[in-house]
């Protein structure tokens, strides 16, 4: 159910936002937009399905601890 809502939401947002960019022929902007939009879509989809994505906080913690020498 949640997954369907997520997909629907992304389709609506993508339609509203990307069509004007396409009509104005801003190709460069469209490329960046679609790349980030796809990343966001992938993340939301995985979260809604229930896949556990590794948190970025853990590697940062390890790096900081290595630099501090603890």
């Amino acid at each position: 159910m949640v997954t369907v809502l997520v997909i629907l939401g992304y389709i609506i947002i993508g339609f509203i936002e990307m069509v004007p960019l396409y009509k104005k022929k801003q190709k460069k902007e469209l490329v960046l937009y679609s790349v980030t939009f796809t990343i966001a879509f992938g993340m939301s989809l995985l979260i809604s399905v229930g896949v556990k994505i590794p948190s970025p906080a853990e590697p940062i913690k390890k790096i900081v601890l290595v630099i501090l020498g603890k």
Binding site: T36, A40, I53, S55
Partner: peptide
């Protein structure tokens, strides 16, 4: 790029997803 307004929504969506996995 010139201007930042066209990128607000995808960035906000990434943040929204990141907020539920970061901790």
């Amino acid at each position: 790029y010139k201007g930042y307004r066209f990128m607000v929504i995808p960035i906000a969506l990434i943040i929204l997803s990141l907020a539920s996995i970061v901790h």
